[in-house]
Each structure stands twice: as C-alpha cells, then as structure tokens.
Amino acid sequence: MMQIWSIAGKEFSDGLRNRWLLAISLLFAILAVGIAWLGAAASGQVGFTSIPATIASLASLATFLMPLIALLLAYDAIVGEDEGGTLMLLLTYPLGRGQILLGKFVGHGLILALATLIGFGCAAVAIALLVDDVDLGMLLWAFGRFMVSSTLLGWVFLALAYVLSSKASEKSSAAGMALGVWFLFVLVFDLALLALLVLSKGTFNPDLLPWLLLLNPTDVYRLINLSGFEGSGNAVGLMALSRDLPVPASLLWLCLLLWVGVSLLLAYWMFRRRLT
C-alpha cells in the first residue's frame, strides 16, 4: 500500500513539475468560461444563456478533449519506463506489477481529477458570481455531475492508455495506438452505428441500438450529462436514440465505473504478460 502511494506521489509531482496539471487546468478554465459566455453566439446571443445549454456544450467539448488528454498523459507510462531503463529496476524491487500500475493510475488520476476540479470549477464559480438570476442549486448539481463524470471518463482513457503502453514495445507505436483508440471511440464508433442503422434499412432491431451506446464510454458520458434536463432539445444525432433507453442514470454511472475497472484489469493482464 505504502509503495502504491510512493509511485502515485512521484507521478503526481512529475505532473506538477512538467506543468501538465497547470496546463490542463488552464485549458479547461478558458474553454469553459468561453463556452459559457460565447456558446450561444451562433444563435445571435452573447452572454450566458442557460445551465443545460452550457453543460451540453461543455460535455460535447470534453468528449473530445478528455480522452485525448488522458491518453497523452499516460500512453508512455509503461513503455516509457521500459525504454528509459527504469522499468527493469522497478521490477527488481519488492513491488508487484499490479502495485506499479495502480500507483501510476492513482497519480495520473489525481492529476486529471484536480485539473477538472480547478478548470471547470473556476467556470462554475465565475457563472455563480457574474450571472444574476442563476439557480445556484441547479448550477452546483449540474457542474458537480459534469465534473465527476468527466473525471471518470478521463480515468477510463487512462486505463486504456495503460493497456496500450503495456502492449507496445516502443513509445512511438504506443502513441500511434493511443491516437487510434481516440479516433475509434470519439469519432468512428458513432459513425459506424449510424451506418449500421442506415444500411440495415430497418431490419436491425432498433430496440437494440441504444444498448450499443453503452459499449462506448464517451457515449455513456454524454448520456449522463444530457439527461435530467426537462424539455431540453439538446439531444442531437445519436443521442436522440437514448430517449428510448430504459436505463436509469445509476446504471450509466455504473457502466462508466465498469469501464474503468475492466480496462484496468485488462491493462494488468497485458502488463503481466510483458517480458522484461
């Protein structure tokens, strides 16, 4: 246990040292504030519109960014240490491979969680202070849910990055695979589902389709953040399907957690198979 914290502590201080934490927090804060005030510019308005609209815009942005940042943060976690020569040394210490992996996950996970809290938290505070007649309870609930689910989404992709990192024999191929995973889950998956829907010309059971969304953590994340606002017309594209999804929100959260757990287990399995 002590060792897990030591590794986590090192990863975390690395994140402080190379300014990752600072950079991600700043990026999140700027984008969140920008979207809150300028998000409605397309419809001819400038200024804060509503909490559901802001959250919807933020969620669709975070769907792209969060996985990318998590993958960038962690893709070299294992293969980088291997190339640097420190992995072999670590493995001769009284540590299991699971402890190494878990330590890294805790360290990286803390960086992501803190950056999310600081970055999006700043935007929430700014809205609370600067917008006059905002429902503070609603703001806290919506932003809290958004920040927690964003962190979970980041953790899923951290764990997926460890899978790649344990599999790859070179850092560059891990980077390539990370890009591939991002592309698959963020872009290709939804397109493939739509294509399936169109090409099957109705022979595909439409009741099944919403369930397929659970196979993609970014879709689960979007479902979590778009639900719960009554009468919001923000559900576009594939998300419109979710209206028929007879699943409670708790199941969506569970699904996201499951994604974290299963990916970590897969990473552990890959790491154990890795030769030194």
Partner: peptide, 8 residues
Amino acid sequence: RYFARLKG
C-alpha cells in the same frame, strides 16, 4: 529517497 521508500 524514492527507491528507499519503494524498498521500505
């Protein structure tokens, strides 16, 4: 110090 902590 890092390696000392890892080794206990």
